[in-house]
């Protein structure tokens, strides 16, 4: 049950460490089953490199089912590869043809320094959440879950934003390396839900300030992030962030 077999050329970014100079290297890989996932294909490559006495390619991955957001990779110039609504770990080799050359690069953004090969440091996204991406409610303070009704459709839109997996594909695919979709997904979710209302003004101001501080670019409403987002977070959330910011800027305190 191995399906068709592919012979591929892989052009992979290799970089020994954060301060080392990186470069592309070409590898030939024969007999890749079309049923393999993209990361399994890299596993096979790594096994081959190990046998040849070379160091395996480092890449981030964990759950391998599209939810943890750990996997990344720019595959032929597209974040998470050619499919929409798909993470690299969900991408399967049936998407490629025999004889293809596949270019694999790490996410590139000044705020995401390369640690090794295809592994980058995305802690900037954590720091943005630290600056305000939460509801300040200590454990034990909560009223009954049904105390505040939330209309089904509002909850649905909040959930659309909350679905963000924090992988950074929006930043990677944006021509400005902007993190607006990531920030907007959280701002939007928490501004839609009544629980997030008390802090909505300070939240958006603080998160945008942190985003700028981390060195992300500015949004030009190109919508490439939406196309690249594996969780299909829509740019309408960015509009909501802008609206929240505009409101916070003009009519709210702080």
């Amino acid at each position: 049950m191995s399906g068709d077999l592919l012979n591929l050329t892989l052009r992979i970014w290799r970089q020994a460490g954060p301060n080392a100079k990186g470069a592309f290297r070409d590898y030939q890989l024969q007999g890749v089953s079309t049923h393999m996932s993209f990361l399994e294909m890299l596993d096979v490559l790594n096994e081959k490199l190990l046998q040849a006495g070379e160091e395996p390619v480092a890449f981030d991955h964990d759950c391998r089912e599209g939810i943890c957001g750990m996997c990344s990779l720019m595959i032929n110039g597209q974040a998470h590869g050619p499919d929409k609504a798909t993470t690299t770990c969900q991408l399967h080799m049936r998407r490629f043809k025999n004889g293809d050359t596949i270019v694999i690069e790490p996410w590139r953004a000044s705020a995401f320094p390369v640690l090794r090969d295809l592994v980058v440091d995305r802690s900037a996204l954590d720091r943005i959440i630290q600056s305000g991406g939460f509801v300040s409610v200590n454990t034990g303070n909560a009223p009954d879950g049904n105390a505040i009704p939330i209309p089904g459709h509002v909850q649905e839109v909040a959930m659309d934003g909350a679905a963000c997996i924090g992988c950074g594909a929006c930043v990677a695919s944006c021509k400005n390396a902007s993190a607006m979709l990531f920030v907007a997904a959280k701002v939007s979710q928490l501004s839609l839900l009544p629980q997030g209302h008390p802090e909505r003004a300070s939240r958006v101001i603080d998160m945008v300030a942190q985003m700028d501080k981390e060195g992300f670019g500015s949004c030009t409403n190109t919508s490439e992030c939406e196309a690249a987002c594996p969780a299909e977070v829509s740019v309408t959330h960015i509009a909501r962030l802008n609206r929240e910011y505009f409101k916070a800027m003009l009519i709210t305190e702080k």
Partner: peptide, 30 residues
């Protein structure tokens, strides 16, 4: 300039994931 600084190293290969555009390289926004 801010956006330029946000990506100090550019990609060797970059393709859009959006549909077909009337203009190359990502439509009017580019």
């Amino acid at each position: 300039a801010m956006s330029r600084m946000a990506r100090s190293q550019s990609y060797a290969m970059k393709e859009s994931k959006q549909g077909i555009f009337a203009l190359p390289a990502g439509g009017a926004s580019s």
